[in-house]
Design a protein around this nucleic acid. Sequence first.
DNA 1: CGGATCGAC
DNA 2: CTATGTCGATCCG
Length: 872
Amino acid sequence: MDSTNKVNSSSSEGLLLRMGLNDNKAGMQGLDKERINKIIMEATKGSRFYENELKKDQQVNQRIEKLLKVKEKINSQQLMKAQLQVDRLAVELEQSRDLSCSIVHIDMDAFYAAVEMRDNPELREKPIAVGSMSMLSTSNYYARRFGVRAAMPGFIAKKLCPHLTIVPLNFEKYGEVSKQVREVLAEYDPNCMPMGLDEAYLNITKYLEKRQNWPEDKRRYSIKTDNTTINGKQDIIAPVDLKLSDEIHSSSPILFEDDSSLAQEQTPSLLPDEEQRDKQSVTEIKSVVFGTSAEEVVKEIRFRIEQKTGLTASAGIAPNTMLAKMCSDQNKPNGQYSLPPERKAVMDFMKDLPIRKIPGIGKVTEKMLKALGIETCTELYQQRAMLSLLFSETSWHNFLDISLGLGSTHLERDGERKSMSTERTFYEISAEEEQYTLCQELCRDLAQDLQKEGLKGRTVTLKLKNVRFEVKTRAFTVFSAVSTEKELFAVAKDLLRTEIENVAPHPLRLRLMGVRVSGFLNEEERKYQQSSIVSFLQPGKQTSDSSLSPRKLYQEHFTKPSETFQRESFFNKKRAAKQQQNQKTFVNGPTNEQNLQDINSSVILIEEIKEAFDSKNADDFQILICPVCFEEQKNSTLEAFNRHIDKCLNGTLNKDNAEMPNNNSQESVHNVFSDKELCQKNKMNKLVDTAQSTNIADNSASISTKAFPKVVVMNNHSMEGKQSLPSDSACNMNIEQNYSPTIISLGNGENFEMTKCMQDTPSAYSPGPREYKVLVCPVCNLEQKTTDLVLFNRHVDVCLNKGIIQELTEEKVSPVGSHITENSKNVGNLDKGHNCTNSTTGTKRPGLMISQSSSKKIKPSNSKCTIETFLK
DNA sequence: CGGATCGAC
DNA sequence: CTATGTCGATCCG
């Protein structure tokens, strides 16, 4: 019963506007909170959606439980130590506090709904929402009184408010209006940063300086009584007598039915028909002068927006973006709030603020913090030491920033796009063929979008949601970037097929499918991608001919579904020989030397591929044998084969975990494992029993696991896929997932637990003591002394990319410690002219996870390793 | 790298 | 009947 109330309970807080104000329609009062929740629950209870919500909620609850357990184990000494550290940082932050900026956040009121009302007088005075029966994007304030809100499905909204009018989305229109608004904003800050169609940040610091000396005339604006906007059907009446410091407020007849302004809606009694702007000649047109303060400027901005578009906006003024955003929320709709640039004012403002109001703190974080007794920013500050022990560094730094009222003071330019995707929700699709068709469609759409921006990416991600609302993503990274429909589909369909096979003979019952591309090439990589790889794969055939570009090769060998895999014969002979060795290795329990051989096998694999590229004959058919489970794997793609091996290895390694009881429905048991797969599993387990007796076995296995996929990357372009293997560790989305805690001890009393999905890809196992290994890079053939497989694999990557090895450059490895200044980028592709893609990156507040205390984090200490480092 | 999650609009 | 679409960030294995 506790949980029954949870759906949406948090969302309907101070939202019911003061009710009995002046309703223009007799008897339309709206609903009180309790009534709203009851109706929502009735409509929700028992639905598949609800079941999933409950499940998610329980997961959060489990996270909270673990959080609390960790908290209990913290002793006062640790706490004191943490306190010192945190406070040291706090002092530093305090010293760098910057109150010199005037940041403005502009937020259009009920944007989509307002646009629709503006353009259709019939909608005014009515409760409306924009969206569909399935999902609403926004609602007007009238409808909000009934509990109708953004992100609510229309059919529920209808139950809350039977008279609700639902208007379909019209993104093109919103885009146009948004553009108009931004034109105004740009005059105050050419660098202004739009966040979606209806919001923007401005830094008006410089503008304010300039404005100080402006004569009054430069700050005077005429008031149009005829507010001709886009479609000219405007009949907005501007305020009659507007003084400098008057709130422009009461002027909007459209938006706020519960506001007095509606009552005075005096539709065109006097429309000065002339288009001429001569202030003197038309008596009805008056003018207004705005002052030079930030507040006056923002009033001016809002005034001009309303004059230009007929829509109202709310605004916040503050020394940083976080505060500005919260300020704009303060007096909405159609109001503004200014926070003076003084420390005390800031702190007072934050003091009693519920944490949920903070941008970046959502439902989950709120709940977790509440579980720790934190509801306001003051409490957030008081608990700072504790938080630093419970959360990741990024998280608690963020919390500290928040509780000090700190935020970004400059608006960063949009960085480069990181991903592009498209997804669609539909009524259940279970037929395989339909699914493939859909997948292809998505790829086609995505390819188009990619082309518009001239982008190519290396990682393709397939997203699936089944009819039980369980979401799953599957990704694959190819060697050379892709962008066309064919290329995308080649990868996506493989991912899809794997998922289908994983649940076979049951169908995937989907309600959503999506495709995403990420891993776009930077300039450097673009060059290499074009030239060196080809020459590497085709030694002796130096060519810049685009017909031999990797993409072409990829298409030839991978895309065409019917094409048979050529030169398998050669490949497999070597492979088979290799497998003999591998088998021995695994059965006998590998030694260090054998370890080396194991790795060396990947050298051969690479060579095989090279040769395979050269040889043009030999198209006979061969059987691959998995070196782990010894099963014959017929005619799969190499990718699938390698994946199979990967899973075998993971599966074996997870044998212990696999014994966790699967207390799910019985159906799941035979759903997940086919007989054959079970058989494989048994074999694997036996193998591991012997192999795991030594530590080395673990490491060797882990090396193989990584080494094989390394090769896969290449296979993917060079080879073509026909049929993939049944996968052993099936992830059946139709089966409820089983979560169980894994407790990870870090020693020193600092330990934490995690939630792990047992039915999903098995993975985690303790790596055991770290010893360095000598590995041979399959590309450059040099021995690499390393403790870190990731590093080694990266080295191989670089080798592959450059063809020749000069230097192994490590990218990211962020410096540990101190300062977290918000330096991430925002991607708001607002002004794209085309398609409604309304992407916004809000404030980039880090999410929160339970952390291993930061001091325990194992981070690579070297940001750069040269080949010499690797050489013995 | 891949997968899951969170958060924003 | 009927619970979005797109994107970035973070964390973990």
